[in-house]
Amino acid sequence: MEPRLLASLCVLAALVLCFAFLADGVFNQQQHGFDRAILLALRDSRDLSQPLGPPWLIASVRDLTSLGGFTIITLVTVLAVFYLMAAGKYRNAAIVTSAIVLGAAAESGLKLLFSRARPDVVPHLVDVQTMSFPSGHAMMSAITYLTLGAMLARGQTGWRLRSFVFGCGLFLTLLIGMSRIYLGVHWPTDVMAGWTVGSAWALCVWMVADWLNRRRRPGDPPQ
């Protein structure tokens, strides 16, 4: 087996196992103490409505968390798909569209399956409406930004540029997930689960795109 494929499968298996561990803990309520401790550690013990840090940090975190919301994710996806189509990469455009649309459907299905309530330990600093597990912002940001980062990195020359492009997607994914914990709207295990399943989804998309690219006929432009 090709080393790159073997490494990808090993990472995928590790991500699936991590999600299974987190999901089992949610069903059995084994991680509730860990979740509570993290949320309480980020708040002023004298006033739980006040997060740690200067006032400007709250506004900054609210701005960051919007990058994982429905509106921004949709806008980024549409612009990326138009870019790929303009570059003649129609197959990649179709892969990105399918991955993110199906990922959004999977995220909604998982929330309904687990039906975990939002944290009630600390006051929420933004309005939320849906269930808690897994974090939709963490999952969709991982699916979107890691998929786009991997796709765009494939078109770069040199490992430095590829690492930078993919690293930007990874950095955004981590920031968005952590913002949900800071704002008190998700248990930490919600975010961790969103990261694992979203990363696994993005990895599967990358593997499919890489396999299709290797199957292209000689003379065909890279997709």
Rank of each mutant, 00 (worst) to 15 (best):
T130W: 09
T130K: 14
M131E: 11
M131T: 15
S132K: 14
S132R: 14
S132T: 14
S132G: 11
F133Y: 15
F133L: 13
P134D: 06
P134C: 13
P134N: 13
P134L: 06
P134R: 00
S135L: 07
S135I: 04
S135P: 08
G136W: 00
G136A: 08
G136K: 01
H137D: 03
H137A: 04
H137V: 03
A138D: 05
A138V: 11
A138P: 04
A138E: 01
M139E: 10
M139A: 12
M139P: 08
M139K: 01
M139I: 13
M139Q: 15
M139C: 13
M140V: 13
M140E: 11
S141P: 05
S141D: 06
A142V: 07
A142F: 04
A142Q: 05
A142Y: 02
I143H: 08
I143T: 14
I143G: 06
T144N: 13
T144A: 11
T144C: 11
T144V: 08
T144W: 03
Y145R: 00
Y145F: 10
Y145I: 00
Y145W: 08
Y145L: 01
Y145C: 00
Y145A: 00
L146N: 06
T147L: 00
T147S: 09
L148F: 10
L148D: 05
L148I: 15
L148K: 05
L148M: 15
L148E: 02
L148Q: 10
G149I: 02
G149Y: 01
G149M: 03
G149T: 12
A150H: 03
A150I: 03
A150M: 06
M151L: 13
M151E: 09
M151P: 00
M151Q: 08
L152K: 01
L152F: 04
L152C: 03
L152M: 12
A153M: 09
A153P: 06
A153R: 09
A153D: 10
R154Y: 07
R154P: 02
G155I: 06
G155Q: 11
G155E: 13
G155K: 12
G155N: 12
G155V: 10
Q156I: 07
T157S: 14
T157F: 08
T157M: 07
G158Q: 08
G158H: 07
G158I: 07
G158D: 06
W159H: 12
W159M: 11
R160D: 01
R160F: 05
R160K: 13
